[in-house]
Structures are given as C-alpha cells and as structure tokens.
Amino acid sequence: MMRYALAAVPVAMLTLAIPFANRVEPRVFGLPFLLAWIVLWILLTPAFLGAVSRLDRSR
C-alpha cells in the first residue's frame, strides 16, 4: 500500500492539482507558475519512484 501511495503523489500533483497551480504568478526562475509546477513534479517523480524501488528491494 505504501508503495502505491508514494507513487500516487506525483501523479496527483500532475493531474488533480493542475487547476490549483494554473496561474502565472509567482514566477519561478522566469517560468510562469503553472509550468514551474509541472517541471518541479517531473523532477521529483524519479525521487518518489526511487523510494518505491527501495521499499521493493527491502521486502
């Protein structure tokens, strides 16, 4: 269960959370907020999947 919950976090952030991140300000490194939000969660997805993989290996 923990594995699925971990993996679900970035998925939710890139789908369900999109309407709430849908704005220009604040700008992050020049990017409009919506684009920065998407980029942030793409960068974090490998970290979450890496954590899932660590759980997998310890089982």
Binding site: A7, P10, L14
Partner: peptide
C-alpha cells in the same frame, strides 16, 4: 510534458 511522466509511474 505531464503524460509521459505519469505513464512511467504506471509502468513501474
């Protein structure tokens, strides 16, 4: 930009 990332998560 978004859909590939989600597809990779599912693919795991």
């Amino acid at each position: 930009l978004c859909y590939g990332t989600i597809a990779f998560t599912l693919s795991y």
